[in-house]
């Protein structure tokens, strides 16, 4: 008797819960469809292509082959069929990695003080500065990169100014160097560092800094022991936001690095273009993705362990 009475509302509850879940799925459907069509499905295509043989004029032949993957690391000599390391791929990967690290470092060096400066302005002025930081986003990346070219090329603004002042006798070669790529990427990705660091600094309770000084910490120690740990989430978020797109950067190295200084993104593009080796391009893309995922997982592990350590 009592069971029957208590069962009835429970059944109703279950029914409501079921409806609730159904509604949620219904609402999520458009998003799921889009994610599947435009993210998961192309990725699946890439995975399939990476295990096929390259077609003669691009595209793929529908026969199974591991060459796409093995070619990432080794290549077969055309004449005697011996295997050797694919030096070109490795050095390009290494250059991408080091240029991305340098870019991340440079955005940190310029971005953290900028974010600090903005966050310590009176609120009204902060918005103006933030607005100025986001202005470059409104302009096409290619246009901005070409603008940088205008600055650093042999007859560019910088060289002409230095020549005019008399500091140098001949223009400095800056175009088509790794410096040009790092310079361009630092410029392009700087806002991605400034914004998350700004958000962290803005949340920082400055009374904690006063407390550190009160407890005999000088400026540098207060920064290292109190400020840095508290704005660390913003710095890490900014570093991820800069590092990942840097690894796959394509336009900036293409325009500022010329044809010689390839980065990973250009290497991939090459396989789908002049290289006519789509399986290799697919394998390279998936490798880049895997590298990013591994480093992200590592980051999540490290930060969550830190948090549980207390």
């Amino acid at each position: 008797m009592t069971d029957a009475i208590s069962e009835a509302p429970r059944a109703l509850e279950r029914e409501a819960e079921k409806n609730d879940i159904r509604t949620r799925w219904l609402l999520a459907t458009p998003a799921i469809v889009i994610i599947f069509l435009f993210a998961t499905a192309p990725l699946f295509v890439m995975v399939v292509y990476s295990f096929l043989a390259p077609g003669d004029y691009g595209n793929v032949k529908w026969e199974f082959s591991l060459d796409g993957w093995t070619n990432v690391l080794v290549q077969r000599d055309i004449f005697d069929d011996t295997l050797m390391w694919a030096d070109a791929h490795l050095s390009i990967f290494w250059r991408s990695l080091s240029l991305s690290v340098i870019t991340t470092f440079l955005t940190l060096v310029f971005g953290v003080p900028t974010a600090w400066f903005i966050a310590t302005q009176p609120p009204g002025r902060r918005e103006v500065w933030l607005f100025l930081i986001t202005v470059p986003f409104w302009t096409n990346l290619l246009v901005r990169t070409i603008a940088i070219q205008e600055l650093i090329r042999a007859e560019g603004v910088i060289n002409n100014t230095l020549l005019f002042v008399g500091l140098i006798n001949a223009p400095i070669q800056m175009m088509f160097t790794d410096f040009a790529i790092a310079f361009g990427m630092t410029y392009v990705y700087l806002p991605l560092m400034v914004l998350p660091v700004y958000a962290a600094v803005e949340k920082l309770d400055f009374r904690l800094v006063e407390a550190a000084h009160d407890l005999y910490a000088g400026r540098w120690v207060a920064f290292r022991r109190v400020i840095l740990p508290l704005i660390k989430p913003g710095i890490i978020a900014g570093s991820i936001l800069v590092f990942i797109p840097s690894l796959g950067a394509y336009v900036t190295p293409r325009v500022l690095g010329g044809g010689k200084n390839l980065m990973f993104g250009n290497l991939i593009e090459l396989q789908f273009g002049a290289g006519r080796n789509w399986p290799l391009g697919a394998a390279l893309s998936l490798m880049l993705m895997a590298a990013v995922m591994v480093s992200l997982i590592y980051y999540v592990r490290v930060t969550s362990r830190e948090q549980s350590d207390g």
């Binding site: 904690l208 009160d214 207060a222």
Partner: peptide, 17 residues
């Protein structure tokens, strides 16, 4: 402040989180 032998208990405590 870091060179004064004076310490403060802040209104909001300002403990390091």
């Amino acid at each position: 402040p870091n060179r004064r032998p004076i310490n403060t208990v802040f209104q909001n405590y300002a403990l390091f989180p």
